[in-house]
Write a protein that binds this DNA or RNA. Structure first.
Length: 144
DNA sequence: GCCAACGTTGGC
DNA sequence: GCCAACGTTGGC
């Protein structure tokens, strides 16, 4: 099975990439939206997950990896809510802002753009790679 | 601070 | 089963 790609959101004021790196990973719990829940269930060990800072930062800041597939969310009363374990892979050299993503025609279909409230979403491999590229190159040279 | 989008709840 | 009211998320 080919590796899949995802994007998860977190408010940095609540839980930031810095917190995540400091802890060397985390249980991604607290998701209480059904669409997001179904996405968590689809995650497989080894899948790569972009880490997005919502609200105050509005940028993709790092890459993480699924370390444990879905299991009942320990913070939920209802066992249908699930969590996964994520570990950091590396930060992006340069965060990729939502504005930059919206300016990129090849990223116009991203759920991040089209459905801003979804907190766990699948992304295509090409989209994942595009964002990585934007995160590695200076803004002046990133249009190609 | 405002508001649009979306989900949930509850009255009917 | 419909829909109005309300709460939450998150961009602007």
């Amino acid at each position: 099975m080919a590796r899949r790609y995802w994007l998860v959101k977190s408010e940095p004021g609540a839980y930031s990439w810095g917190d995540f790196v400091e802890e060397a990973g985390t249980c991604w719990d607290g998701v209480r939206n059904n669409a997001a829940r179904l996405n968590l269930i689809e995650m497989r060990k080894g899948d790569l997950v972009l880490f997005y800072h919502s609200v105050s930062d509005k940028a993709v800041v790092g890459i993480s990896r699924v370390a444990r597939e879905s299991y009942p969310d320990p913070t939920a009363d209802d066992p249908r809510w699930v969590a996964v374990d994520l570990v950091p892979v590396r930060p992006l050299r340069k965060p990729v802002s939502l504005a930059r993503i919206k300016a990129e025609p090849r990223l116009a279909e991203l759920a991040l753009v089209r459905q801003s409230r979804l907190s766990v979403m699948p992304i295509r491999r090409a989209e994942f790679e595009r964002i990585l590229r934007l995160g590695e190159t200076p803004a002046s040279a990133s249009g190609r």
